[in-house]
Design a protein around this nucleic acid. Structure first.
Lengths: 135, 135
DNA sequence: TTGCTCCTCACGTCACGTGAGGTGGC
DNA sequence: TTGCTCCTCACGTCACGTGAGGTGGC
């Protein structure tokens, strides 16, 4: 039996809430230990400390999940801090709640980036066509 | 008569090659002095020095134009250094010459970014639709 | 004793932004 | 003397990557 399994079983048997090591979360979400520590330094995660060791609750795990979803949506970590720390948002829910303003701004922001990349791609594809034609 | 005009006229009358101050190029290309100095530190530009002052030749100006075009195409400064410093590429031409490999790689790179942004936009627009529906 | 996992600094990366403090010529 | 333009440090920003050197429990 791995120590991972042992700790899950132990928590279950004693009715303790489940906790995760930094390695557990890193593996599950495909991020580095460094990233998790960095999110903590930025105030996005606040794991329990036992000496120097970190222990993450299932609420920490939920927050991490929201942080990574918000990152996929293109928000910066300081924007994400505001989003996941908002006291008006439901605590235990994994879904990200954005205000109408946040939505519109982010959509506009990404649309600008999209346009820049599309313009670059158009130019590069034109250059490729020229290369093929010259061959 | 501005000193700018005076220097243009003076160069013309004496048949000296035109030179530009850092402020000239910054204004013309809409970049900061800091950016131009940074490109120099990275080995992308090598203006003539007269004491501490910088003087840019028209070849420097052409290089700057290529640097900024390559930036629009999404290349990093170290990639751009390789592109504009390639001895096989025509010296005085403003057009950027990319190898087939460079083209394909950059197109693939931008297509990945495009897909990520499109996925994020799709999600955000879905959230907006939900917001409107709930109102 | 060896591995494995975890820890804390702390410098590096990317492309500059942003002062601070000073100089030179009109 | 005042403005304007230019200069050189040098730290700050963003989101971590990457060692170095050490610890704790199986």
């Amino acid at each position: 039996m791995t120590s991972q399994l042992a700790s899950v079983a132990s928590a279950f048997l004693s009715n303790r809430p489940r906790e995760y090591t930094i390695g557990d979360l890193a593996r599950e979400f495909g991020v580095t230990l460094r990233a998790l520590r960095f999110y903590e330094a930025r105030g996005l995660l606040t794991p329990r400390r036992e000496g120097l060791a970190r222990f993450y609750s299932s609420r920490d795990r939920t927050r991490l999940s929201m942080i990574l979803k918000a990152k996929q949506l293109g928000f910066t970590l300081s924007e994400i801090k505001a989003i996941v720390s908002d006291p008006l948002r439901p605590e235990e829910s994994e879904t990200i709640r954005l205000s109408s303003d946040e939505l519109e701004e982010q959509i506009a922001h990404l649309e600008r980036q999209l346009a820049e990349i599309e313009a670059a791609l158009t130019e590069l594809r034109d250059m490729r066509r020229e290369l093929v034609r010259a061959a």
